[in-house]
Structure formats: C-alpha cells, structure tokens
C-alpha cells in the first residue's frame, strides 16, 4: 500500500505543474462562486443574511469533485504511463489497492482544497469553518461518496480500458443537477425529486444550507446521507472486485493502454 502511495507522491512532488493544477481549479471555482454569491446577497432576500451559502456549497461540491477525480486520476496515470500491468502483477490484494488509492486521493484532494478554503476568508470574509463540528461529517460523507463514484468509474476503466476515460470526467457533471447543491430539492420536477432522494448529496447540501440559514443541526440528514453512502460504497467495492474478475476472464488487464 505504501509503495502505491509513494509512486504518486514522487510524481506530484517532482512536478510543479501538477501541484499548480491541483490548486488552480479549486481556487478559480471558489473565487468565481464567491463573486456570484456576493451578487445574490445584494439582490436576493433569501440569501440576504447568508452570504456564504453558495460559496460554502461550492467548496463542498469542489471537495466532492476533487476526491472523485483524484481517485480516477490515480488509475488514469497508470494507464497513460503504460504501467498498469506492472501494478497488477505486483503482489497487492484488491483491498490494498483500494485502501492506498483512498488515502492517496485524500492527500491530492486536500492539496487543492486547503488553499481554496484559506482564500475565502480574506477575499469574501467567509469561513467554511463556521459550520462547526458538523463540517467534519459533511466532508467525510462527501469524501465517501466521491470515492464511491471513483470506484464505479475505475471499475469501468479496469473492465473497458481507456475508452471509459470520458465517463471518468463527466460522471460528476451528470449527478450535479440532481445533487441539489445550490438549491432545495423542491426546485426539481417531481420525477427528478424521486431520483434525487436516492442520492446522499441532497441530504448533505440540504443540511449545509439548514445549518447556515437556521443555525441548527439536523443530524437526521447527516445520518441518512451516511446510510446511503454505506450502500453505494458497498456496491462500488463489489463492482470493483467484479470488474477485476471479469477483466481477468476477458483479458483487458493485458491490453490496457492500447
């Protein structure tokens, strides 16, 4: 596990453009949404006393986005460098691969997110830390969901190879409208509301808004998000094992990178 972590640590450490890339996008995202939320705060009654809602949601969504993409990137890096087969003939259990990717993805995500969080205070006078202790649970819940999405996409990469790469990039954009990141679930048409209720994102972002607007924590939302996360994570891990088994039958582990 430590070996796989080291492989990506060496890669990031030696490449300034990679570090810059990790920091650049979250920072741009936060600055953009910071100005949009300033505009809303000036012209909307709803957001009148809660300037930070959109910005806080943007930071949380970016955390989710980065964690999922980081997980996928660790896989894609191996495919692009044609190192994939070397890893799968190394004596690593699937569980060890998953655990090392989960921790390495977390570090990649934090490298990008911490500077973005630090930027919000001097630029917009907002600190995401105002969410208090529940922030930890919200981050944890988002990270689990991000990793789960990463597992789904990586399973596709193992089974179908690099042709699955586009799905890796677009997976989160597909879920964003249903996740109700910036608006309450009631905004969605009824049919989409039914689908959205099956996603932990709805409960996480609903609770974020609730804490900021009402200054009150509804742990039911947080717990419900964790229940859903547990189900999806279990499916994600099972799918990863299944994909590996299918790839061994179909031979896709040998032709990876072609």
């Amino acid at each position: 596990m430590y070996g796989l972590f080291l492989r990506h640590f060496f890669l990031i450490k030696s490449s300034f453009p990679r570090i810059l890339d990790l920091i650049y996008w979250p920072s741009i995202q936060i600055i953009l949404w910071g100005f949009i939320s300033k505009f809303f705060s000036a012209y909307s009654d709803y957001y009148n006393n809660t300037v930070g809602i959109i910005l806080t949601c943007a930071i949380l969504y970016d955390f989710l986005f980065r964690s999922s993409i980081s997980f996928n990137m660790l896989f894609l890096e191996e495919i692009w460098s044609r190192n994939f087969t070397n890893l799968f003939i190394a004596p690593m259990k699937i569980s060890e691969i998953i655990i090392s990717l989960v921790f390495t993805a977390l570090i990649r995500t934090l490298i990008g997110l911490v500077p973005a969080i630090l930027l919000t205070s001097p630029l917009f006078g907002i600190s995401i830390l105002n969410l208090g202790v529940p922030l930890f649970f919200l981050f944890l819940s988002l990270y689990i969901f991000g990793i789960t999405l990463g597992l789904f996409v990586s399973s596709g990469l193992i089974r179908f190879g690099p042709s699955f790469e586009n799905i890796a990039w677009s997976s989160l954009f597909l879920l964003a409208p249903l996740g109700c990141i910036y608006y309450p679930i009631e905004i969605l048409p009824e049919f989409f509301q039914i689908l959205a209720k099956g996603l932990p994102l709805v409960y996480i972002f609903d609770e974020t808004r609730n804490i900021l607007v009402n200054n009150f924590v509804n742990f039911e939302n947080i717990l419900y998000a964790f229940y859903l996360n547990a189900i999806y994570l279990l499916i994600g891990i099972s799918l990863f094992y299944f994909s590996f088994s299918m790839a061994r039958k179909k031979g896709s582990l040998i032709n990876m990178g072609e």
Partner: peptide, 19 residues
C-alpha cells in the same frame, strides 16, 4: 509495459521494492 516516466530510476525501483 513501461515504468512511470516522470519518476527517476531510483524512485521507480523504490516503489516496486515497497510493492
């Protein structure tokens, strides 16, 4: 099959020694 190009020879050998 290749080894990661952006890692030095020594880093690659350390990674595989760990694995």
């Amino acid at each position: 099959i290749e080894l990661p190009k952006k890692l030095t020879v020594k880093q690659n050998l350390i990674v595989y020694a760990k694995l």
